[in-house]
């Protein structure tokens, strides 16, 4: 995370063009500062948030601000969803450079230069997202699945109560199981679980029971042997 301070903000405030536009850069999200924040940081996810804010705040008069930030957001959003395309990195760079130099207001110029900094300083992460559809810190939703660690779950049922997707199966004294096809990865279950049993998994999927079984009876065998699509892709990629 050493490169964080290098994002190019130089002159952003002075670059504001001739357009009459009240939007300033102060509405944009700030880069993480605390170690905890940095640990849970994904440059691509942050870039997505940045450009989403920019496009929503745009006054709409300038095409680069209105459409440029929106287009950048769409591209980054696709990347976080694992739908990035091979030339997206170059396309983004091109768009952001133009917004940065020709953008008519402080906000769009600042957002673009912040985002360009993220592109330059986290090239490997962008590459990982675009080509391998992975997120190193498991922040981008497409990069992980959510499961309940069978050895930790005590069948308390709190997670079932909060799940907005009705994705969790289970009952009294049974190890709970998250149905991957229903789960929207909102992580509310993780917040309420007293045992900390809700886990994210990236490419390597752990063994979990296919359906609820009595607490303590999990042997690690006969469960789901499901391997996510990301696993297969990773093999092909290497």
């Amino acid at each position: 995370m050493s490169g964080m301070g290098n994002t190019n903000e130089v002159g952003a405030a002075n670059r504001a063009g001739k357009m009459s536009c009240d939007v300033t850069g102060s509405c944009l999200p700030e880069l993480p500062k605390t170690p905890q924040e940095i640990e849970r940081f994904c440059a691509i996810n942050f870039a997505r948030k940045l450009m989403d804010t920019a496009r929503r705040e745009s006054c709409g008069k300038c095409v680069l601000c209105r459409e440029g930030t929106w287009q950048s957001f769409e591209i980054i959003h696709d990347i976080t969803e694992g739908k990035g395309q091979n030339d997206d990195f170059e396309l983004l760079t091109e768009l952001l450079e133009q917004i940065g130099s020709d953008g008519g207001c402080e906000m769009s110029v600042k957002a673009a230069s912040l985002c360009l900094g993220l592109l330059r300083n986290y090239q490997e992460e962008w590459d990982l997202h675009i080509r391998r559809k992975r997120c190193a810190n498991l922040i981008c939703k497409a990069s992980y699945t959510v499961h309940i660690a069978p050895e930790l779950c005590d069948g308390c049922g709190k997670c079932i109560g909060v799940c907005p997707d009705h994705a969790i199966l289970g009952g009294g004294n049974l190890i709970h199981v998250i149905q991957g096809d229903r789960c929207s990865k909102c992580m509310l279950c993780a917040e309420v679980c007293p045992k900390g049993a809700v886990k994210k998994a990236g490419a390597v999927k752990p063994k979990v029971p296919a359906e609820p079984i009595p607490v303590g009876s999990f042997s690690g065998a006969g469960g789901s042997s499901e391997e996510g699509p990301s696993m297969r892709r990773r093999r092909r990629g290497e």
């Binding site: 001739k18 357009m19 300038c62 020709d102 008519g104």
Partner: peptide, 9 residues
């Protein structure tokens, strides 16, 4: 002039 379309660059 509004300078918004950027086509007259």
């Amino acid at each position: 002039p509004q300078g918004g379309c950027k086509l007259c660059t």
